[in-house]
Amino acid sequence: MYCVKCGVKLQEGTEKCPLCGTPVWNPDGLSAESTYSSRMPDKTFDRDPFAAFLTVLTVLAAVAVSAVCLVLYGRLEWGSIVLAALLLFFVIAVLPFWFRDPNPVIFLPIDTVALELFLLFLCLRTGGHWFMSFAFPCAGIMGIIGTATAALLKYLRKGRYIVIGGLQIILGAFCILLEFFQHITFDTAMFRWSLFATIALFVSGTFLICVGLFRPLREFVNRVFYI
């Protein structure tokens, strides 16, 4: 049995040539004997030992900082800020690695809440007045954008380029908002840097949306960048 197009000999019963896809005439109705089984590998949980290492490291750092502060000052003093930062680090960077399939749609809101609480604590501890007018809205908007993007990327089967492009345009708009919050809180000048970032993000976001909308361009990018 040969492929009429490639000229290679094929296994008896092969339905089509594995090289060119040309259907093979099989008058005897033979079926090819498979060289590989049909068994697909199980997806196993590959927990990173680095997570355990980081957890131990975080706990050790917390114990060391507490001990130093208690010995030196008799109370936590600046140690409370370090402890809060370590807790934030644990929630954001270590906790997801302990789960089999960490869902970003669940973890990103948790991270946002943890960040908001940390910033509130920092604001109260340092006697600042920047939480409600700057940190709360900025971190909140970032959390909402991140969660929405993660949900779209996770649950939509298609349209990744459009989602990422859209995210870039929204982030561009957010840059202007960020500078506005900065202006009303810290009395800085408006539009010193945000316009540049917005234009750059708008251009790259629009390009990605175009890639997502035009199939030949999308396939070209996938092929060239081996995605």
């Binding site: 492929c3 490639c6 000229g7 290679v8 000999k9 094929l10 296994q11 092969t14 339905e15 040539c17 594995p18 090289l19 060119c20 090819a32 498979s34 060289t35 590989y36 089984s37 049909s38 068994r39 697909m40």
Partner: peptide, 24 residues
């Protein structure tokens, strides 16, 4: 694969070809 193996055939090297795609 198609281009490479067809070139070998054209050079006079007889090939028989198998694939794991006909398997499962």
């Amino acid at each position: 694969e198609r281009r490479f193996l067809t070139k070998l055939v054209e050079l006079g090297i007889p090939l028989s070809v198998e694939s794991n795609d006909i398997g499962g």
